[in-house]
């Protein structure tokens, strides 16, 4: 196989080579657990609004104005992130995909709390105003931070006693959007509680 590759003018990239390439460059050391628990979560909990209030503002004021008043958008490169409080009865816990979700019966919109093990979202990083791409200087380090913050969110979910349909839960989290909400509000949690477990 390698002979074919050499004579064809392209090259195979071994896993070792790619790992070396990936590890080039430096990035600031960040204690993501502390960042998540000591900075982002308290700030988000105090800054968050009821989801219905945000959705109503988007409907009435338009997306741009609502984003300016209630959201965080660091530049045109990022979606607008809103920090919301949601509460409702669990309609389903969907783990059929690795993008697991708790689906809530709550208001007009479908609300889904992302629980992992995959969270394909950068809302926690992009919605916290103190985190700036300029402080990182390379895109991989910036992306790694987002992934690490999502792992903290998954750990937070894992610490909650098993949630099943019919439970009542409340959560605070971030949802990001480029232009409003269609059918479903997906949030990445920084706080999750079973209300009826207390």
């Amino acid at each position: 196989m390698s002979t074919v590759v050499m004579t064809s003018g392209f090259k195979i990239v071994s896993s070792e080579e790619l790992t070396k390439i990936r590890n080039e460059g430096s990035a600031p050391e960040v204690d993501t657990s502390s960042l998540f628990h000591d900075d982002i979560a308290p700030w988000a909990i105090s800054s968050s609004r009821e989801a219905d209030e945000i959705l109503s503002a988007i409907d009435k004021q338009g997306f741009s104005e609502a984003c300016q008043e209630y959201g965080v958008q660091k530049s045109q490169a990022f979606p607008c992130t809103f920090w919301v409080k949601v509460a409702g009865t669990v309609a389903a816990v969907d783990t059929s995909s690795r993008v697991g979700k708790i689906k809530l019966s709550s208001g007009d919109k479908n609300v889904e709390i992302l629980i992992g093990p995959v969270i394909p979202d950068t809302a926690l990083r992009d919605g916290y105003p103190e985190i700036d791409y300029s402080d990182f200087g390379n895109q991989d380090a910036f992306a790694n931070l987002s992934e690490a913050l999502n792992r903290e969110a998954i750990s937070l979910v894992d610490e909650v006693e098993e949630i099943t349909p019919g439970d009542r839960v409340s959560a605070v989290g971030a949802f990001s959007t480029w232009g409003g909400v269609e059918d479903t509000l997906q949030i990445v949690p920084v706080e999750l509680n079973r209300v009826n477990a207390e």
């Binding site: 530049s75 045109q76 490169a77 990022f78 700036d132 791409y133 300029s134 200087g137 895109q139």
Partner: peptide
């Protein structure tokens, strides 16, 4: 502007 800027 900041020196490093990303575009969507």
């Amino acid at each position: 502007e900041s020196e490093r800027q990303l575009f969507r």
